[in-house]
Each structure stands twice: as C-alpha cells, then as structure tokens.
Design a protein around this nucleic acid. Structure first.
Length: 439
RNA sequence: GCGGUAUUGGUGAAGUGGUUAACACGGCUGACUGUGACUCAGUUAUGCAUCGGUUCGAAUCCGAUAUACCGCCCCA
C-alpha cells in the first residue's frame, strides 16, 4: 500500500469541520483588525530563505525541502511565511501603497524536514501576520493582541504572554559580544548543546533547560543592561499599550527566539496544557526592522507573528473546547422505488436550493437501514416518496426525534421545514419546542 | 542528526513457535417485500506493516526497511 509521506497527515470528517471553522474565525477576525489577505507561492528561490531567515538557523541549514527545477533553478519549499511575504511586499512595491502601514495576514502550509513528534509535522499549517511601515510600539502591541484575542474568542484558558526586547541591531550585537566574553572561560561547565550554541547563537544559551539552574547563568550579563535609551523606551511603550488592552504579560529576559531577523520586541504566547511540553508555545513573533532591507527592499520596519494550527487544534482538544456546532441534516429523502427516483431527486434539489441541507439515498438501502442511516446523519426529518406520494402530491414526513409522522402537501414542504412551532409543552418526550405538535 | 516504544479486519483487541487467528463493537442480508427498538439466523481478515532469514512448522524468534507515537536538538 502507498502511504502518506512521513510527517504529513490527511484531514477528513470531524477534523475537517473544525479546521474550516477555525479558518473562518481567523478570516473574520482579520477583517475586524482591517488586515489584508496575502498569498505567496509555496516554493521560492532558495536564496530568499538563506538571506531572510538566516544561514545559521537550523530551519535553513538542515530542515529545508530543496529541489532543482527543470530549468536548473534552486528552489525551496517555504519553511516559514515571513520571507515570502516580505519578498512579495518588495516586489509589488507595497511600500508605495496609499494606505500605510501595510497590514497583511497569510495562512497556508509550510515545510520543514524534521523528525516528526508531538505537534510537529513536516507539512504543517501556519497562520501569520506581517505589518510593514511603522515602528510605533502600538503596532507591536496590536500584533500581540491578535493571537491573544483569538484564543480569548475560542475560550482557551491559561494563556500566557511572554515578551522581551532584543533592542536594535547595535544593542543586540553589543550584548552578544558581552555574552561570549562572559561564557568563554566557562565553556567546559556548560552542556554539549550549549557549546554548540556558543558558536552558532550564543543568546540561546540563556534558555537552556539543562544549565538553567547553574550559578554561571544567574550572573550572566542581562539584555536590559545593553539596550540603548531608544530601545528601552520602545519596550516600555509596548508594555503600556498591552496594559491598555488588558493583556497580561510576563517579561522573560531569556526569551530570544531562533530566527536571526528579530529586533526590538519578541514574544511568545503559551498555553498551559499539562504534559504538553514545548508544544505549549502556540505562536511566536516579533519586530524585524532590518529584514526588508536585507532582502533587497527599502529600509522599512516590520513586525509580525506566526502560529501553528496543529498545536492549536491539539490544545483545543486537550482543553475539551468544541466550538463547532453539530452537523445537522434537515431532511433525508427516501425514494421507495426506482420509478419515483426522479421525483425524489427533484425534491432534494429544490430543498438544497432553498437553503436546507438535504440528503438522498443512493445506496438503494432497505427501509430499515434508511431509517438507521438517517438517524446517524442526525437528520431532523425523513421524507418518504413512493407511488402513493407521487400520485397524491402529499409527502410522508417523519420526525426523527419524536417518530411522529405527518402528511404534508408537496407545495407546503418548504414552509413545513421552515417553521418552528414555538410552544410551551406538548406530549412528546424530550420536547425542545420545535416539533410540529399543537400546543 | 541522536534516542525510546510500537505496528494483527471498518473499530477495540486476544493470541509469545504447532492444524480453522479468539472475543466484542460496528456493517450488511433475512425473519419483517411502505416504517426505525428488541430478538434470532446468517455473513463480514485466503491473513498479522514490508522484505529477507532461522525452523519440519513463524503473527510469535532474528535482521533490515517503512510508518506512527514519545523525547533531545530546533521550532509554530
């Protein structure tokens, strides 16, 4: 049997409904925030990611899906969304758009050649936001508010916002040097991973799980001491604006994030699912004021974030949040013989056009199994069509919940399905006030 | 890139070298040819992830591969 490629997954059934629901909710939220939808190619020149994301990151150095196309071009399946959106911003000269800042959102699959594990796939979906053209700390706060509000809307509890500031490029470089000077004589006492980090990305030593409790860590130079005045003020404003939106946050001086392009604000939003581990980080992002220029555009500040849909879905499952309403079927139509099939399909079609969900038996099921099937599909009504019904133009309609049977003229069926008799009570069991009984 | 565990019908699974792969749920058909429950009777894996090996004999032992799940690294 041919299996799906490692680290991929199929979507079907209930999961499909959940995903569509989340996508709809996200699109509506972005409408409220007044962001525009952008879509960029799934593959780009490999060079874009090398320049944009950074050579030293694992994402680019060992996790990309690369291929050479038939025209001998080096291509890479996008491992993240930002680089492509920035490329598109520059190529479409959006820095010249009449409305500034340019606020965009995207959604789609990303590809990383990783070992699959809990909440991590080789093909995974990210929703993200990128805003170009303003350095106002208010924009940092607005971007942070998007995932927070989204999780609020979904009813996800225990959301934690971690923020930090890396300062401008100059501050960041000075701090990096200070860290290297500090750790260099103590390298032997650090774990093997940290020795690696020392060479590749010294800032990451700070959030090492193994060494975090050691004395050396506690006395390491602090980022805050290396921020210049402007960077400090920017960070202060971001915090004030978050408070104005009643968004609680924790300043985590060890939060550095993996991608090379961040400057000033960086943040992560965490869920608090027990035993969820690193999966608890539902989204992350920050400001990247040099990225547009690095990729070849005019010097333009930017800020954004990305969130993984798979983790969100798992977190919602863990928290038992099921916001999707049950799939209901208004009518299940049963043709009782080959001769009346045309009338049955005609009715089905008419109902569908009128906005009802309608299903018709295409398995030539027995009467018994049709009723069973209709129950499984959560059909409210079963409509039987046989010789008698066709001759008389009076349909036999059975209500699944009450097992009550009605005779309804063909001409009145839409009205019948439309109306709900609101009443105080009736004789049927479990009456929910929408059955067709008299008071 | 490194490590751990697993893989038997549509589903949950039993089976740890010996004929026919247990049991349960679900599905389908019929008793009941225009009415759903229940009951009863049938039926539902020529096969135990794949390939190779050991053996008179393998779902069971060995090896490789694939995939899944869980960690590390890294990240969303």
């Amino acid at each position: 049997m041919i299996q799906k490629p490692k680290g991929t997954y199929d979507v079907n059934g209930e999961k499909g409904r959940k995903i569509l629901y989340l996508e709809k909710l996200l699109a509506a939220l972005m409408e409220n925030y007044h962001y525009q939808y952008v879509r960029t190619p799934l593959f780009e020149s490999s060079e874009l990611f090398h320049r944009g994301v950074g050579e030293t990151t694992d994402i680019v150095s060992k996790e990309t899906y690369d291929f050479i196309d038939r025209g001998n071009r080096n291509m890479t399946l996008r491992p993240e969304g930002t680089a492509g959106v920035v490329r598109s911003y520059i190529e479409n000269k959006m820095y010249g758009d009449v409305i500034q800042p340019v606020k965009t959102w995207y959604y789609g699959p990303m590809y990383r050649y990783e070992r699959p594990q809990s909440g991590r796939f080789r093909e995974f979906y990210q929703f993200g936001v990128e805003v170009f053209g303003t350095n106002d700390p208010l924009m940092d706060a607005e971007v942070i508010s998007i995932p927070v509000n989204f999780y609020r809307l979904l009813g996800l509890k225990g959301i934690k916002v971690n923020i930090n500031s890396l300062g401008d490029q100059e501050s960041r470089l000075r701090y990096r040097e200070a860290l290297m000077d500090y750790f260099k004589p103590h390298l032997d006492s650090l774990c093997n991973d940290c020795k690696e980090r020392f060479l590749k990305n010294p800032l990451r030593i700070l959030d090492c799980k193994v060494d975090s409790e050691k004395e050396i860590m506690k006395h390491a130079p602090k980022m805050q001491d290396y921020l210049n005045e402007e960077s400090k003020q920017h960070f202060e404003k971001v915090k004030e604006y978050l408070e104005a939106m009643q968004i609680e946050y924790t300043v985590n001086p060890n939060l550095v994030r993996g991608l090379d392009y961040y400057t000033y604000t960086v943040f992560e939003v965490e869920a608090s699912v027990e035993g969820f581990g690193s999966q608890n980080v539902l989204c992350g992002g920050g400001r990247y004021n040099n990225l547009v220029e690095t990729i070849g555009g005019p010097s333009t500040p930017g800020v954004g974030f990305a969130m993984g849909m798979e983790r969100l879905l798992t977190a919602l499952e863990f928290e038992n949040i099921n916001s999707v309403e049950e799939n209901v079927l208004d009518a299940y139509i049963v043709p009782l013989s080959e001769e009346v099939k045309k009338e049955a399909i005609s009715l089905t079609n008419a109902l569908r056009l009128s906005g009802f969900t309608a299903e018709i038996d295409t398995m030539n099921r027995s009467m018994k199994s049709n009723f069973k099937t209709s129950e499984r599909m959560h059909a409210r009504y079963v409509i039987l069509i046989g010789e008698d019904e066709v001759k008389s133009n009076i349909l036999t309609v059975k209500e699944n919940q009450t097992k009550e049977e009605y005779k309804v003229a063909l001409a009145d069926i839409i009205d019948f399905l439309d109306q709900t008799f609101i009443h105080d009570e009736c004789d049927c069991e479990d009456c929910d006030g929408t059955c067709h009984h008299e008071k």
